[in-house]
Design a protein around this nucleic acid. Structure first.
Lengths: 146, 146
DNA sequence: CCCTATAATGAGAATAGTTCTTATTCCAAT
DNA sequence: ATTGGAATAAGAACTATTCTCATTATAGGG
């Protein structure tokens, strides 16, 4: 999905909910779309500077999360990172480097993904649990730290 | 693994590192072993009361994490939960309820687990990433909330 | 069993990430 | 242009966690 079409999708979703797509909110979305992995409030703030003050940034992330535009990711102590929801970017998983802590997205070929889904359904049914989604985090050494 | 054999394993591991297995540390381990899923400092404190003051509890969890006895789990905003490491309890995954937020352990039959490992290796090799482990979180509705 | 060195503890202060409050500003529809 | 509700900005407040340091408990040697 192109960046501008993502923008249009978001404008539509927010419009449907009477939530305004303001300059600050666009800036945060653009910063999230520009990278390939979840980003923290601090990282976004460093990038956006005074254009989006920290308190507004947090509020914006909460608004976008409410609207289903972004999704939080909890992968480190005391740090919430956000990324665009999968209906905008496509389903993917994470590669988490055990050395440098970097988190990168990885798109999974659909044959693999189908297998993951099958396993998840199987495991769920063993435990009287009805799966609606799954998160697979692959831990290891990234190319830089290998 | 029985609770007392877990205790013996931990005593050995801590002894090897000249870390004392004191009353407070035993109490924290017992509280963790008594449940089937990761628990937060607040939850443990509510349970243990003044027997283990909050500051000692946090320190204890840090010591146990250092020694590889417990493992942190980041699954909620601003909250770290801990559980006994897999060499004590066996490899497992998590069922995360999207309604009530509960996190439960689920043991995965070894045939399934082997498939998960195979997929993880395959995905890693597509991305020049050398996997050392994986975390599979299954999101959905638990039996209570179904 | 008692001493002693050292590790561990407990109480509270300090910190960091995040959320809340409130006055002000912006925006869309009249 | 006006206006009413939504959004913003600044800083105070809050909460989970970590730090400090004086006190206490523990293991090992006598």
């Amino acid at each position: 999905m192109t960046s501008s079409s993502i923008d249009r999708e978001i404008a539509k979703r927010l419009g449907d909910r009477d939530v305004r797509y303001t300059r600050g909110r666009r800036a945060v979305v653009a910063a999230l779309a520009a990278h390939d992995g979840p980003r923290s409030a601090a990282e976004l703030h460093a990038e956006l500077g005074n254009a989006v003050p920290l308190s507004s940034l947090y509020r914006t992330l909460a608004v976008l999360e409410d609207a289903g535009v972004v999704v939080p990711h909890f992968g480190a102590k005391n740090l919430t990172r956000y990324e665009l929801a999968e209906w905008l970017t496509g389903h993917h998983h994470h590669l988490v480097c055990i050395d440098c802590g970097a988190v990168d997205d990885v798109d999974v070929p659909s044959t693999y993904e189908a297998e993951v889904r099958r396993l998840v359904e199987g495991i769920g049914s063993l435990a009287s649990f009805r799966p609606t989604g799954h998160v697979l985090e692959i831990e290891g050494k990234c190319a830089r730290c290998a």
